[in-house]
Design a protein around this nucleic acid. Sequence first.
RNA 1: CCGCCCUUAGCUCAGACUGGUAGAGCAGUCGACUGUAGAUCGACUUGCCCCCCGUUCAAAUCGGGGAGGGCGGACCA
Length: 326
Amino acid sequence: MDAYELITRNAEEVVTDEEVRELATEPEGKRVYVGYEPSGVLHLGHLLTANKLIDLQDAGMEVVVLLADVHAYLNGKGSFEEIRETAERMQAQFTAYGLDEENTEFVYGSEFQLDEEYTLDLHELELSTTMNRAQRAMAELQSGETAKVSHLVYPLMQALDIEYLDLDLAVGGLDQRKVHMLAREELPELGYEARPCLHTPIVADLTSGEGKMSSSEGITISMEDSTEEVEEKVNSAFCPPTRDPEDDLENPVLELFEYHVFPRFEEIVVDRPEKYGGDLTYEAYESLAADLESGELHPADAKGTLASYLDELIAPGREKLRELRS
RNA sequence: CCGCCCUUAGCUCAGACUGGUAGAGCAGUCGACUGUAGAUCGACUUGCCCCCCGUUCAAAUCGGGGAGGGCGGACCA
């Protein structure tokens, strides 16, 4: 797999392709980032972008993880002390998950977002951005919630972070695209360079298969789930025996294979009783999806396999969490 | 500062005028059927009715006070 392919695999959107191709010609030392509001326990949503960071790391890029404590504060997530505590746990889980500790720079937002220069740039952005635009860019706002001033400042800071962290590429879920577009539009106004960005897909809800829904509602698998809980959750997932369900629905089991399992394992073995045909081995998502479609692979076997690989992925983080808590 | 509206199940809301301690839909849980899930049947669960005080035999409901949330208050139309 060449650098461009590795950088963009499983990406839902790349803005712009030309700019990212340019980065891919010389990925070494290029700085990329994802910002996360500190959370005590990582879930699949976090891990999806983390997978992309691992890809980028493998491509030779320098990964920056922003532990966005100031953003969390602006979003009403508690005191700085509480937020810092969860941020520390988050960092530990990321490294347990597989982000290379040597080559990952973990940065707290408060380390630079309170500096005078940053603040003045922020005010300049406030001056040139309408409330309407800022609110539409604010991905972390609960639907139905009415925005506080802090919620409008939030995306503007995200835009500035891209400059202040000296990045070459911004990464995030597709829900971040409006912020990134805001950044691309506004940074040049401040005399800074617009950076390319790359968006990961939003995986469908596990139980309903509804796509593009907020990841905060519904069941998700997290670092603190036990093996049994992972099995239960995966087993209760929506999984018609096809890769392309009707009515705008997705097959979340296949999506988890595609975005979470195949990127992290060389080969996937389906442990299947002789009665149903014995074990199956896959090296690529495509062949597994095709087998599910054809009926060669039964959803129940796919689920059992998915659960065990997901469990393997979260096991180190689960262990780390247990250490931290004792 | 002033005015209006809202607050009842996890969610969206009925119920208030005509007091008798709560309902629907969705969600959820459990079965049946499928070698998974869903769909479909069948059963079931859920409540400081925002808080306090008062009236009353009796208050989600009436009166007073308070809290939280939403919207509005120049001109123009």
